[in-house]
Simulated scan of single mutants.
Amino acid sequence: MTEHHDNDAHKPKGIYLLPNLLTTGGLFAGFYAVVASMNGDFKLASVAIFIAMIFDGLDGRVARMTNTQSAFGAEYDSMADMLSFGVAPALIAYNWGLNELGKIGWLAAFIFVAGAALRLARFNTMVGKADKRYFQGLASPAAAGIIAGGVWLGAEHELDGHSIGFIVALITMAAGALMVSNFRYHSFKDVDWKGRVSFLAILLVVLVYVIVATNPALVLFAIFMAYAVSGPFITVRGVRKLKMEHVVGDSKDADFCEKQKAAAEQSEATTENAKENEQKAKD
């Protein structure tokens, strides 16, 4: 009994500062996006969503690099994502082009919020089970990027969102539906960010920055729209016969999930063999 209390006393208490500080930055950006949209500054609200994406991309990587992962940090990150990539984009779309559509407007915004909530809940329950190379359903930051990019593009060209309210509603609902779909999206987690690359690759990165800087609203909107379309394309190409389970529903019965699991096992086996060969070479 005394030994058990001694072990509890030696457990570290408190939370890690750096990753949770970055998560808080993303949460602040999402909240600011809501406030800015309420004040009619839709361009600034959209930019705040993209800033929240930067914080969201950094907090997890910093936590892994500094070995400061925690259950608290994971839960806090999900709650921050719900605001920044669920509630905030929906309210931006509603304030910009949906609030004059009546019930259709706020229902379209709610579909997006519900889709983001379900997407995050499903992602949290599948951590460590699904193939890391793919996301099941459109990731909430990407869906938020479609909304924020579209509103930013419209605001930059002084387009009245209410004049295209039905198009805004259609895009908002489609983004919400894609989040809860079974379509596969590349996660890019298999990219070796620590590995060496050629000088040409660095030049290509510089070129991408230049292209984005020329017209960030248009380029970002196009990138996230293309990514959203890539999911159905990848899924349809990877199955022999498209079924309802491949689009929505119980993904456990889908053929592509079996292929996904097999691919993940094969990838793990290849990685283990590579490590064994590297160790033998060192010995």
Rank of each mutant, 00 (worst) to 15 (best):
V191S: 02
E100C: 07
V206H: 00
S251D: 10
D59Y: 05
N99G: 04
A139C: 03
S251P: 06
D283W: 02
D41P: 00
R122M: 03
T125V: 15
S78N: 11
P19D: 02
I111D: 00
R133E: 08
G165W: 08
A274R: 13
K129L: 09
F31V: 14
N39R: 13
S70D: 03
A108D: 00
G115N: 06
Q136S: 08
G149Y: 01
Q69C: 05
K241P: 04
V239N: 07
F28Y: 07
V191G: 02
N124S: 11
A139F: 01
E276M: 10
A264D: 14
A63F: 02
D41Y: 07
L207P: 02
Q136N: 12
L98I: 05
E272D: 13
L101R: 09
E276W: 04
D131P: 06
L207Y: 06
I15G: 01
D81C: 01
I171F: 13
V219R: 01
A144C: 09
R122K: 14
G26I: 12
L18P: 04
A121R: 05
S46D: 03
V206K: 00
I92S: 03
L101G: 09
G30K: 11
G57V: 09
V206A: 15
L203A: 12
L218K: 11
P216S: 13
F72L: 04
M126C: 03
I147S: 01
L170T: 15
G154D: 03
I164S: 10
N39D: 14
F183H: 03
V113I: 15
A144R: 06
T270Q: 14
D283V: 12
S84F: 06
R133V: 08
A201L: 14
L58S: 06
L17K: 00
P12T: 10
Y76H: 06
N95Y: 10
G176L: 09
D190M: 11
R240A: 13
K280V: 10
A148Q: 02
V206D: 01
V34M: 09
N67I: 03
A177M: 15
K13Q: 13
S198M: 06
